[in-house]
Amino acid sequence: MITLGLLEKNTFLEAVNKKSGTNVLECYQCGKCVSTCPVSGYMDFPPREIMQMIKLGLKEECYMANSMWFCLTCSACSGRCPREIDVPAVMEAIRHLAIEENYRSENKKVKDIRKFHDIFLDMIKRYGRNYELRMMAEFNIRTRNLFKDMHLAPKALLKGKIPIGHESTKSAKAIQKMYKLAEKLEKDMK
């Protein structure tokens, strides 16, 4: 049953507000964010609806939506929001909460996007920096789509657009230590 948040304490709203540093209750549902957002058309629930869902405490529905995974953090919405709500921060808060509470969408696009970010973070952990060609190759392998963008390869490689080799940085060791400490910090803060 949906309660209006009057009878029960809306802990989800509180968690989102705390994490995002913005007050979702300020939203008066004008929809300017939706018309501004370049990817709202791809979202299960565009930003305006997400705001209302948070107010209603629809936690699981928010976690399982693709919306926060499609948000590109371009900040066009927050720049135009008449209530000055930091919409990308709200999307980020939902995303982090969903990760923390182990919610995983089975949506193929969401899985791809998550995989991309995992590979990216792995890459930094290993080398301290990111290497585009390796990144693309690894994504294709891990999504079992070996031929994605292969038609771009001859031109891009021949022209030197995407360099083949890469440098190793001294920073890699420091980064690996940082990853460990950051992870520990995240646990301690909980």
Binding site: M123, G128, T169, E186
Partner: peptide, 15 residues
């Protein structure tokens, strides 16, 4: 080192 670009803030807070 890499600033973390899109991926770090999408997936983690501290990193």
């Amino acid at each position: 080192n890499c600033c973390g670009a899109t991926s770090a803030h999408v997936m983690t807070e501290n990193l």
